[in-house]
Design a protein around this nucleic acid. Structure first.
Lengths: 362, 362
DNA sequence: GCCAAAATGATTGGCGTCAATCAATAAATG
DNA sequence: CATTTATTGATTGACGCCAATCATTTTGGC
């Protein structure tokens, strides 16, 4: 009764090689190779024999041997905004930590710093790498028609382009690796709404700039959820703080003092050090329900200190891993492999990672 | 650290080989090889010369060539509970989807089904694979001293053993890949607490069995948080439903009818189809705040239908990926690589994966 | 300075695939 | 039928590393 069933897979100690396939198919190695690598000039009949033999033996090309023989190396570049931003420090740190491992697989990654969020800077950077003959690049992009031309110049040389964190013009990149920021905003709104439990509320929103697409998307998602499902919560006009800690601090203080009925804060963008500072100095007894984005050193600490209740994070480590996997796959066979959606992650005090790569100081 | 300038990467990019290292170090290939593979019988002076040359050239062993030459194949097994459990179906499906990719890297994975959560069955299964000479196994385990002996028998043959989802006796496995269930329970408690916003509340807890360590841990975490931070919420005695949908349904109905002041439900374990059924037939207008575990088809749907408010998930896909990576690393060099903690993931209606290819809306 | 031990050098045959060459055979054409 | 053309076969040298053998040199003990 308690038999354990082995699954379909047997114990093939002998892994079939292409020679084995050729033998089984009754053709020469050369023909099997022609089929395997789609070199053409093979009769349909032979193709079928070889393919059948492959299935029968369960042949899978040995990736190590193939890569070795092919002398394939992957030349990749990541174009990241420069500057002291804590989030992108996390990204860079993670790439650095992978460098050795990647090199063992002949994957060479270069980080190129670009002017953060300025179309002209991005455009210039793209043009300047157009001749560098990368096999693939991941770009923290902007959704602007102005960069279509440089993108196409790069792509015309066979370079694979993917968007990272923030998307590029959809038709001019192969894939986008990042979260859906509307969903991220909705998630923030949902938790904030839940935490009001049918009570009245007023939210002060702080954002960087509505020109940044991610901020705009988050704000939209957030507002939609509140309006749809939490009508008792009032949305105050967002304060624009340009992701600047000082401006954020001022905004929070304004909300604390000039708008005494505020029950919650939502910071759409960066600059959370300022937010935490303001809250630490807060003399009001009643506390805010507070939602911010991106788990970095100070937001992590603020969560533990109870100045912040929820952090919505986009898991840059995973984004990088996926960007690498996707680029490699696209370069190899020009087909992206299906992966589960990247999704905004919710952190509260109790599900924080303890061994962290995100505590890198900025 | 932050010295990532525009890299000088337009060169031919000659990746150094071990021959290059030998040449640069002024020793023979044989000596460089002795150092590289730690074969011993090398003078300290030579070791130093070779190591210096490696650093100077930035030598990293070509993994493809090494694996090919070594003729290394990885024979792995996953021991999973059998039965129709939705969660483990997800696990199996994910492994299946990886099979081809893995085989290209000479990784052969066998799924072995074991009697779910019965010590005797697990023990028998372990003993029966002891001679199969796997390089590594991942076991959905039990924290019981009875399986120490079979585990040690397996390990004595050089097989690497890791715990998966549910841990094994700590000293008798190499690593554990799974979430911290106390944290998972705390997370559930935190969200349920937040959603009460200082109001009174009563929670009906439903659990499978407190003999299962994961359930016990979750329950502890949950109760701790409520007691610590939400004193206005009363914890009713847990109902044991053995992860059985019918029993869960009965438990929910009991809470609905016999305990009219219940404001929230927390299902620690499985059997959520029963929970949803009961809620769908609920005639009371006031709804519960409802937290369950594991994102599977029906809990996903329940989240969208608003019968469930929060799902705590352990991301089995990622667990599998990590189990594979960890096993491979341990087999290769007997050292687990550092990875960010696996953490309980929170899903609300708005951050669900949609599994479509990731195209930004415009 | 002799001899054993230790260290180093030199070289080789794979591993499985790729990419090429050249010869040999089969099929198609007029 | 002769002559193209298409298809197959046979073989080979990388790729970079591993693992082994055997020869040679250096070192250290006495």
């Amino acid at each position: 009764m308690n038999k354990h069933a082995h699954s379909e897979s047997s114990q093939p100690l002998k892994i079939p090689t292409l020679s084995d396939v050729a033998l089984a198919a009754g053709v020469s190695y050369a023909t099997a190779d022609r089929v395997s690598n789609e070199r053409g000039n093979v009769a349909d009949k032979s193709v079928r024999k070889v393919r059948d033999a492959m299935d029968a033996l369960g042949y899978v090309r040995n990736a190590a041997a193939a890569n070795l023989s092919r002398r394939r190396t992957y030349r990749l570049a990541f174009l990241l905004p420069k500057g002291p931003n804590a989030f992108f420090s996390r990204v860079r740190a993670h790439i650095d930590s992978l460098l050795n491992h990647l090199q063992a697989d002949q994957i060479n990654v270069t980080i190129i710093e670009i002017d953060a969020f300025e179309i002209e800077g991005l455009k210039r950077s793209l043009l300047s790498i157009a001749d560098a003959a990368y096999d693939g690049i991941a770009v923290v992009g902007l959704h602007s028609p102005e960069i279509v031309e440089p993108l196409e110049k790069i792509r015309s040389q066979g370079t694979i382009v993917v968007g990272l964190v923030s998307d590029l013009p959809t038709l001019h990149r192969e894939a986008y690796i990042g979260i859906n920021n509307v969903a991220a905003g909705r998630t923030a709104g949902r938790l904030l709404g839940l935490a009001h439990a049918d009570k009245q509320g007023r939210v002060q929103i702080i954002a960087g700039s509505l020109k940044a697409r991610d901020h705009k998307d988050r704000l939209k998602g957030f507002s939609d959820v509140i309006r749809e499902d939490y009508p008792k919560i009032e949305l105050l006009d967002p304060i624009m703080a340009r992701d600047n800690p000082d401006k954020v601090k001022a905004a929070v203080n304004e909300a604390l003092i000039a708008k005494p009925k505020v029950t919650a804060l939502y910071n759409v963008g960066a600059g959370n050090t300022g937010l935490v500072e303001a809250l630490e100095q807060n003399t009001r007894k009643k506390r805010f329900f507070c939602v911010v984005h991106e788990l970095v050193q100070h937001s992590h600490k603020a969560l533990l200190n109870k100045h912040v209740d929820v952090v919505i994070d986009q898991r840059p480590d995973e984004e990088i891993d996926r960007a690498l996997t996707t680029l490699k796959a696209l370069i190899d066979d020009r087909t992206a492999l299906p992966m589960q959606d990247l999704v905004p992650t919710i952190y509260v005090r109790d599900n924080l990672p303890s061994n962290n790569s995100h505590t890198t100081p900025d």
